Measured scan of single mutants.
Amino acid sequence: EPLWIRPDAPSRCTWQLGRPASESPHHHTAPAKSPKILPDILKKIGDTPMVRINKIGKKFGLKCELLAKCEFFNAGGSVKDRISLRMIEDAERDGTLKPGDTIIEPTSGNTGIGLALAAAVRGYRCIIVMPEKMSSEKVDVLRALGAEIVRTPTNARFDSPESHVGVAWRLKNEIPNSHILDQYRNASNPLAHYDTTADEILQQCDGKLDMLVASVGTGGTITGIARKLKEKCPGCRIIGVDPEGSILAEPEELNQTEQTTYEVEGIGYDFIPTVLDRTVVDKWFKSNDEEAFTFARMLIAQEGLLCGGSAGSTVAVAVKAAQELQEGQRCVVILPDSVRNYMTKFLSDRWMLQKGFLKEEDLTEKKPWWWHLRVQELGLSAPLTVLPTITCGHTIEILREKGFDQAPVVDEAGVILGMVTLGNMLSSLLAGKVQPSDQVGKVIYKQFKQIRLTDTLGRLSHILEMDHFALVVHEQIQYHSTGKSSQRQMVFGVVTAIDLLNFVAAQERDQK
Rank of each mutant, 00 (worst) to 15 (best):
I238E: 00
I239V: 04
I239A: 06
I239K: 04
G240S: 07
G240T: 02
V241M: 07
V241W: 01
V241Q: 07
D242W: 00
P243R: 02
E244N: 09
E244T: 08
S246T: 05
S246K: 03
I247C: 05
E252C: 03
E252M: 13
L254K: 07
N255S: 07
Q256P: 04
Q256F: 11
Q256L: 14
T257E: 02
Q259M: 11
T260H: 09
T260C: 09
T260M: 11
T261N: 11
T261V: 07
Y262V: 05
V264C: 10
G266T: 01
G266E: 01
I267E: 06
I267T: 08
G268S: 02
Y269T: 04
D270Y: 01
D270L: 02
D270P: 06
D270N: 02
F271N: 00
F271H: 04
I272L: 12
I272V: 12
I272A: 02
P273T: 13
P273N: 07
T274G: 06
T274V: 04
T274F: 00
T274Q: 04
V275D: 01
L276I: 07
D277P: 01
R278H: 02
R278M: 05
R278F: 03
R278K: 14
T279E: 11
V280G: 15
V280I: 03
V281P: 11
D282K: 14
D282N: 14
K283N: 15
W284M: 00
W284R: 00
F285R: 04
K286Y: 02
K286P: 01
S287K: 08
E291Q: 15
E291S: 13
E291Y: 08
T294F: 14
T294V: 14
F295V: 12
F295S: 15
M298E: 10
M298A: 10
L299W: 02
L299P: 04
I300T: 07
A301Q: 08
E303F: 05
L305G: 01
L305Q: 01
L305I: 11
L305H: 02
L305D: 00
L306M: 12
L306N: 03
L306V: 04
L306P: 05
L306T: 05
C307E: 02
C307D: 03
G308V: 00
G308C: 00
G309V: 01
G309N: 02
G309A: 04
S310V: 01
S310G: 02
A311G: 11
A311T: 15
G312L: 03
G312N: 01
S313V: 14
S313L: 04
T314E: 02
V315K: 07
V315L: 13
V315W: 06
V317H: 07
V317E: 09
A318I: 00
A318C: 09
A318R: 01
A318E: 01
V319I: 14
V319R: 02
K320T: 13
A321D: 10
A321R: 08
A322I: 05
A322Y: 00
Q323S: 06
Q323F: 15
Q323R: 14
L325K: 02
Q326K: 14
Q326E: 13
Q326D: 12
G328S: 14
G328R: 15
Q329K: 11
Q329L: 09
R330Y: 07
C331F: 01
C331A: 11
V333H: 00
V333C: 13
V333S: 06
I334A: 04
I334Q: 02
L335P: 00
P336M: 03
D337E: 05
D337N: 04
S338W: 02
S338M: 03
V339R: 06
V339S: 06
R340N: 05
R340S: 01
R340E: 06
N341A: 01
N341F: 00
Y342N: 02
M343Y: 05
T344V: 04
F346G: 02
L347T: 02
D349P: 04
D349A: 07
M352K: 07
L353F: 12
Q354H: 11
G356Y: 07
K359E: 13
E360N: 15
E361G: 13
E361Y: 11
D362M: 09
L363G: 12
K367F: 14
P368I: 09
W369T: 03
W369Y: 03
W370D: 05
W370Y: 06
L373K: 07
L373N: 11
V375F: 09
V375T: 03
Q376E: 12
Q376I: 04
Q376A: 03
E377S: 13
L378Q: 01
G379V: 13
G379S: 10
L380S: 10
L380F: 03
L380W: 07
L380V: 12
S381E: 13
S381D: 13
S381A: 12
A382W: 09
A382T: 13
P383D: 02
P383V: 07
L384D: 11
T385R: 13
T385E: 07
T385V: 05
V386E: 11
V386R: 06
V386D: 02
V386L: 14
V386N: 04
L387T: 12
P388Y: 09
P388W: 12
T389G: 10
T391R: 02
C392P: 09
H394S: 07
I396G: 09
I396A: 08
I396Q: 08
E397Q: 15
E397M: 13
E397I: 04
I398V: 08
L399H: 01
L399P: 02
R400N: 12
R400P: 11
R400I: 10
E401F: 13
K402Q: 14
F404G: 01
F404H: 05
D405W: 12
D405K: 06
Q406H: 09
A407S: 13
A407G: 15
P408C: 06
V410F: 11
D411N: 12
E412I: 15
E412A: 14
G414E: 13
I416H: 10
I416A: 10
L417Y: 10
G418T: 09
L422C: 15
N424A: 13
N424C: 08
N424L: 12
S427H: 09
S428C: 15
A431G: 13
K433L: 14
K433V: 12
Q435E: 15
P436K: 14
P436Q: 14
S437W: 09
V440N: 12
G441L: 14
K442H: 15
I444L: 12
Y445I: 15
Y445C: 08
Y445N: 09
Y445V: 14
K446M: 12
K446S: 15
Q447P: 13
Q447R: 15
Q447H: 14
Q447A: 13
F448S: 11
F448R: 07
F448M: 06
Q450C: 11
Q450W: 15
R452M: 12
R452A: 09
L453E: 10
L457P: 02
G458D: 15
G458V: 10
G458S: 15
G458Q: 07
L460Q: 07
L460R: 05
L460G: 07
L460E: 05
I463M: 15
I463Q: 14
L464M: 11
L464T: 08
L464A: 09
E465S: 14
M466T: 12
M466L: 14
H468S: 14
F469W: 13
F469M: 03
A470C: 04
A470N: 06
L471W: 12
L471A: 08
V472R: 06
V472T: 12
V472C: 09
H474F: 09
E475D: 13
Q476Y: 10
I477W: 06
Q478S: 15
Q478K: 14
Q478R: 15
Q478G: 15
Y479R: 12
Y479W: 02
Y479I: 12
H480T: 10
S481H: 13
T482E: 05
K484S: 13
K484R: 04
K484P: 13
K484D: 02
S485G: 07
S486P: 05
Q487F: 14
Q487T: 14
R488G: 15
M490H: 14
V491N: 12
F492N: 12
F492Q: 11
F492V: 15
G493Y: 14
G493P: 12
G493L: 15
V494N: 03
V495Y: 09
V495Q: 08
T496E: 07
I498Y: 14
D499V: 00
L500C: 14
L501I: 09
N502C: 08
N502A: 13
N502Y: 12
F503Q: 01
V504Y: 15
V504A: 13
V504R: 08
A505H: 06
A505P: 02
A505R: 02
A506F: 15
E508W: 09
E508P: 11
R509T: 13
R509I: 07
D510W: 13
Q511F: 11
K512Q: 13
K512M: 11
K512T: 12
